[in-house]
Simulated scan of single mutants.
Amino acid sequence: MNFQTPLSALVPGTSGRLLTALVAHHTADASSPLALDELSRAAAVTPAQMETALFRLGLLGLIAPRHGGEAVCLVPGHIVWDALRQLTDLRGRVVDTAREQTRAHLHPAPEYLALSGAVIEGTATHSADVLELIVVPPTAAPADWDDGLAALVTQMSRALGNVVVPRRARSTREAEAMGSESTVRILPA
């Protein structure tokens, strides 16, 4: 999965690039008009290509009615904007999924679990870009605890569409040293 520009990955071509630029504008200042040349640059789409896509967005009610060549005015309160904005930043959903899957697969819970790598940084653009699970197993881990970790890695890989790699540490201090500024700690909460 492309976590850097997920809308463009899910909606390829002109429409995805245009939606990405419009969501960015909606987030920054939904009430101000957006000049076509500015939108064209932000979306890397020619004005001629934009008009067809903008027409369709107008039919959906995401933008106000307009004539060809006019600036784009968003309909800020349209219910789809929040959903689209959530798709542009999936980091929170990755964290929530990791929490849910950890509860489902790791018994007892690890002493420490954090997420690191290109997926959590939001820079992943290819399915080979990784999410690292930095884990300190519980001190009294049962013999089958590693099976739960393998199941967690498999489930997370499927859920994300990216490679998930576990990295073991012997202590919380060692685990924290493995991370970076963008590392997100899951456990302890």
Results as ranks from 00 to 15, higher is better:
residue 1 M to T: 15
residue 3 F to D: 13
residue 4 Q to E: 15
residue 4 Q to S: 15
residue 4 Q to T: 12
residue 5 T to N: 14
residue 6 P to G: 01
residue 6 P to Q: 04
residue 7 L to F: 01
residue 7 L to A: 07
residue 8 S to I: 09
residue 10 L to Y: 06
residue 11 V to F: 11
residue 12 P to A: 12
residue 12 P to L: 11
residue 12 P to I: 10
residue 13 G to S: 07
residue 14 T to F: 02
residue 22 L to H: 02
residue 22 L to V: 00
residue 22 L to E: 04
residue 23 V to T: 15
residue 23 V to R: 07
residue 24 A to W: 00
residue 25 H to Y: 05
residue 27 T to Y: 01
residue 29 D to C: 06
residue 29 D to K: 05
residue 31 S to H: 10
residue 31 S to K: 09
residue 33 P to M: 09
residue 33 P to A: 15
residue 35 A to T: 07
residue 36 L to Q: 11
residue 39 L to G: 03
residue 39 L to A: 05
residue 40 S to R: 00
residue 41 R to T: 15
residue 42 A to G: 04
residue 45 V to G: 00
residue 46 T to A: 03
residue 48 A to R: 07
residue 50 M to H: 01
residue 51 E to V: 05
residue 52 T to L: 10
residue 54 L to Q: 04
residue 54 L to Y: 02
residue 56 R to T: 15
residue 57 L to W: 01
residue 60 L to W: 03
residue 60 L to K: 03
residue 63 I to V: 12
residue 63 I to Y: 02
residue 64 A to M: 14
residue 64 A to K: 14
residue 66 R to D: 03
residue 69 G to K: 03
residue 70 E to T: 05
residue 70 E to K: 02
residue 72 V to F: 01
residue 72 V to T: 06
residue 73 C to V: 14
residue 74 L to Y: 08
residue 75 V to T: 12
residue 76 P to V: 06
residue 77 G to M: 07
residue 78 H to S: 06
residue 78 H to Y: 03
residue 80 V to R: 02
residue 80 V to N: 05
residue 80 V to I: 12
residue 80 V to L: 09
residue 81 W to N: 06
residue 87 L to V: 05
residue 88 T to H: 00
residue 88 T to R: 05
residue 90 L to W: 00
residue 90 L to K: 01
residue 93 R to C: 09
residue 94 V to N: 11
residue 94 V to Q: 10
residue 95 V to L: 11
residue 97 T to L: 15
residue 97 T to M: 12
residue 98 A to D: 08
residue 98 A to Y: 00
residue 99 R to N: 07
residue 100 E to G: 04
residue 101 Q to V: 14
residue 101 Q to I: 11
residue 102 T to D: 07
residue 102 T to R: 05
residue 103 R to S: 15
residue 103 R to C: 13
residue 104 A to S: 11
residue 105 H to N: 06
residue 107 H to K: 10
residue 111 E to C: 07
residue 113 L to V: 11
residue 115 L to D: 12
residue 116 S to Q: 08
residue 118 A to C: 13
residue 118 A to S: 15
residue 119 V to Q: 02
residue 120 I to Y: 01
residue 123 T to I: 12
residue 123 T to S: 15
residue 124 A to T: 08
residue 125 T to H: 05
residue 126 H to R: 05
residue 128 A to D: 15
residue 128 A to V: 14
residue 128 A to E: 14
residue 129 D to E: 14
residue 129 D to R: 05
residue 131 L to A: 10
residue 135 V to Y: 00
residue 137 P to G: 08
residue 137 P to E: 12
residue 138 P to M: 05
residue 138 P to A: 06
residue 140 A to E: 15
residue 141 A to N: 06
residue 142 P to K: 08
residue 143 A to H: 04
residue 143 A to P: 01
residue 145 W to C: 01
residue 153 V to H: 10
residue 153 V to C: 13
residue 154 T to V: 00
residue 155 Q to Y: 00
residue 157 S to T: 15
residue 158 R to P: 00
residue 158 R to E: 12
residue 161 G to R: 13
residue 162 N to I: 08
residue 162 N to P: 04
residue 162 N to G: 10
residue 168 R to H: 09
residue 169 A to E: 13
residue 169 A to N: 09
residue 169 A to Y: 06
residue 170 R to M: 10
residue 171 S to F: 00
residue 172 T to S: 11
residue 173 R to F: 07
residue 173 R to Y: 02
residue 174 E to C: 09
residue 177 A to G: 02
residue 178 M to L: 13
residue 179 G to M: 00
residue 179 G to W: 03
residue 180 S to L: 05
residue 181 E to H: 09
residue 181 E to P: 06
residue 182 S to G: 12
residue 183 T to A: 09
residue 183 T to L: 04
residue 187 L to P: 01
residue 189 A to P: 10
